[in-house]
Design a protein around this nucleic acid. Sequence first.
DNA 1: AATCACTTCCAAACCGCTTTGGATATTATA
DNA 2: TATAATATCCAAAGCGGTTTGGAAGTGATT
Lengths: 344, 344
Amino acid sequence: MNLKELAIKLGLSPTTVSRALNGYPEVNAETRERVMAAAQRYNYAPNTRAIRLATGRALAVGHVIPIMTRHEIVNPVFADFIAGAGETYSRQGYDMLLSVVPDDDEDRTYRVLKSRGSVDGVIVHAPRLHDPRIALLTEIGMPFVVHGRATGSTLPYSWLDVNNRRAFLRATEFLLDLGHTRIALVNGLEFMDFAIRRRNGYLEGLAARNIPPDTTLMFSAEMTESAGFRAARQMLALPHPPTAFLVASMISGMGVRRAVEAAGLTLGRDISVIIHDDDLSYLPNGDDVPIFTATRSSVREAGRLVAEMLIDLVNDPAPTPRERLLEAELIIGQSTGPAPKALQ
Amino acid sequence: MNLKELAIKLGLSPTTVSRALNGYPEVNAETRERVMAAAQRYNYAPNTRAIRLATGRALAVGHVIPIMTRHEIVNPVFADFIAGAGETYSRQGYDMLLSVVPDDDEDRTYRVLKSRGSVDGVIVHAPRLHDPRIALLTEIGMPFVVHGRATGSTLPYSWLDVNNRRAFLRATEFLLDLGHTRIALVNGLEFMDFAIRRRNGYLEGLAARNIPPDTTLMFSAEMTESAGFRAARQMLALPHPPTAFLVASMISGMGVRRAVEAAGLTLGRDISVIIHDDDLSYLPNGDDVPIFTATRSSVREAGRLVAEMLIDLVNDPAPTPRERLLEAELIIGQSTGPAPKALQ
DNA sequence: AATCACTTCCAAACCGCTTTGGATATTATA
DNA sequence: TATAATATCCAAAGCGGTTTGGAAGTGATT
């Protein structure tokens, strides 16, 4: 059942039917009723392909997921972020287009997305320092919003980010207030923008108390359980081990916990751990009471908001970029406590 | 730059240019060269919206992700599965359309996807017993492939599944061979088809050795770390506790491990654990040597294959459904060992 | 030289919608 | 009552491709 057939059945022109369904004013209220009812009855839904061609809009948003050819890691926060963004798209009648491409092919993908008109805009994931995608997208005129920020980028751009620096600063201060002075950082890969900001927050916190940073207590790698385990095991074996860990994610935190327990130490008593919790639905930080003390910020909510920002941007391409900084909460769990006296 | 403009620049008709680019035979080799070169030079890419309308094909595959309104869990294997499927789509020139919808709205979503012509087919995720989606999709004539199977469904349908029954049967046998007789099952939600099959494999393994199943050793819940922890803690506190656990996922396995260690027991010595490992890229089961003994099957590879099956199906709607059963490997890690003598 | 079979190209219809530019009927205004 | 304004509807022209049904040219065949 298409527009024309429906129009014939109603004894109206396609024009009028189209207008009736799309809420244009130049159609009799009674006629509109009739049209709506018929559309319902015949189960009519306009063909999106035709709408897209006629309007020149894709009614779709692209997410380009680069698969790193080196370390083949799919970002664990991806599923929840997508779920959040997807909620927004469903609500607003947009489609979500996912392109999974080798990371050396990302440029071409954006160009093709643009020239084929497949999407109205894109979301940029996991920005790195001096991220080249910002210049590329600006150049080809593709609207975009970055989830995160790209330190070092000179062009203006729209973004939504968590205040990672502040989150890790607060976490550091919290540990310092508990009497910890040997605080380790188990960070993500430090070419990622968020990781840099977190490190900066950590360093800032230490500096404010005149504690010189100790590179043996600073670790950076992919946020896997194993990496967290290795980092913590290694640091706990130091002659002057840390009494607290600041950890980049729930998953690495589980590795850290394993190392702590393997060393015969007790979490929250001998060793304090604060993680960053993206509030992933399949990795809840405990049920009622949180397992880990954490800086928490829902990546799903971020997905919802970023998607909204992009749709706004597409519908009203204002010259001034949209920016939004979310604060992470610091939630207290069972993994932190006062620094052990013996080591203070 | 569109077809017409390109045709004018070349002094040819749009027909010829279209045919040249699409490899039709009725065009001079020399002319084709010229057209290809010009397309390259002017950076011409055909507008997908027009192609879709003209051909009546969506050149897109849909993935409908139901967000359960109750327990808001996004499937953790989702990201890797999507990554795998996405690789296939990129390779074959298809778009991947993701719809995130409340689970009570899934039906409507499929109908709309069909009547609007947004996709050529869909992948059905996470089938349950008697899954109603199979009848629905068959009824509305939407090509689909199920990732998994739906026990109880009477209609024929195409699917790709891991032999979950066999995997858990083998894992059970492996534990039995090690002398374990008190084997616990920490399963996923048992309205999910894969969970039922795993339980069946487990029960079959026990039955073959004349071990009656013990319901106090059978647990079923969402596959979270906390759920795994709770299940194991509870079972380990039993008067006659298990010496081995069969666990549905890496994540629940981590919870089980935590409970084991919290009970002062050692994994692989006092307690054996076998997990099912979906080979998620962000949750590797150890680096070089596996942490957990596991039944392993790459969900990413499954994604690649399911997507291929669907595209085949769309391009050649054969009457006989396509079926494919993958076997899981049993890989030996550090989490299993002979049953402790004292408890045997 | 006429006919036939290819080869190579093109004009025009079509996909299903939106949107422009009227046309017609109805009501208000002078 | 004539005219202007308004309400309501429609024909037709896109949107940018694909595809059908020739047409013209070329070389081979009779």
